[in-house]
Simulated assay, not measured.
Amino acid sequence: MLSGIIYVFLATVLFSSMDVAIKLTGGVFNPLQLNFLRFSIGALMLLPMSISKLKKANYKLSKKDYLNFIVLGFIYAVLSMSLYTFSLEYVSASIASVLFCCNTFFSIILAAIFLKEKTNIFTKMALVICFIGILVIINPLNINEPVFGIAIVIISALIFAVYSVYGKYVTQNKPTGGIVLTCYSFIFGSIELLILILISKIPLVSDFLISKNAVDFANIPIFSGISSDDIIILLYISIFVTGVGFSAYFLAIEKMSVAMASLTFAIKPALGPILASIFLKEELGSYQLIGIIFVIVGSIGIIISQRNSAKKDSLLA
């Protein structure tokens, strides 16, 4: 249980720092370019550890495993992250970041349906408190964001929830745990993104996208436009946020329930503004401070509830 909480904390801190890191680049990266690069570098970093883990387990990946990795890479890197990136054309980054954290609630529902994971009443109450905190942070009564953009973010969050639950399902009773799953899904996701980037460079496709004002998706660069000053931030996002962060997230799922691991995205809306305040000197409003308190209280409630459930299960075993 303790190791699972440590993994959740590590993933939360790393994920919450991503928006701050991107802002520090001043928007120099094309969104899909950044996704391709960070997934590629993150996968390469995790590959030696993945191969080592498979050798120790004396396990050879099957065709079914590769198929699952291809599907997972498509679900997350291509669908979820591309939709999330596309949503930024319509809604602010802060609102998109907070709304994306709704995947916590989708994950719990899907895990209950497909993985038969049970969530006790105290955990549900704590999640409601977190949800109230998220609503307070985004202040929906005073939000000036297009409904279309908000809908895209929520769909992106739902798809990520599918990725999380499907990821746990395909790794059950297999040595292809969090690191292997993350590594290979990133490899295939990167390949799929590269294919889309190359397609965007076809003159006919590029001209069509430009005519539809989808400039960010036309003639997408791969390496051009990156200065030496931005490489450190790119490596941080790729190695730590993407590689280490997602490995910690899936290791947390291995150690505990999806509900507990998804606490990562329940805390992120509270931690993100705090990190932005520290590193970007952004001021925290009264609504954000109140919302952060709700999220912290709810998160503590989830941890206590899940820990008590784990103790109860060990006594019954």
Rank of each mutant, 00 (worst) to 15 (best):
V8E: 03
T12A: 05
T12E: 05
V13C: 05
S16E: 12
V20R: 04
I22M: 11
K23N: 13
L24T: 07
F36Q: 07
S40K: 05
P48N: 09
N58Q: 14
L61K: 03
K64V: 14
F69P: 04
I70W: 15
F74W: 06
S97L: 12
I108T: 15
I109H: 00
A126W: 00
L127C: 13
I129D: 08
F131A: 15
I138K: 02
I143G: 02
P146W: 05
P146S: 10
I155L: 15
F160W: 13
A161Q: 03
Y163I: 13
K174W: 03
I179L: 08
G189S: 09
L194G: 07
L194C: 06
I197M: 07
I199Q: 04
K201Y: 00
K201M: 00
I210L: 06
I220W: 01
S224V: 02
I226D: 01
I226P: 01
S228E: 11
D229H: 06
T242M: 12
K255L: 15
K255G: 13
V258D: 01
M260S: 15
S262E: 15
S262D: 15
S262K: 04
A266W: 01
E282F: 11
L289N: 10
I292M: 10
S299T: 15
N308D: 15
L316S: 14
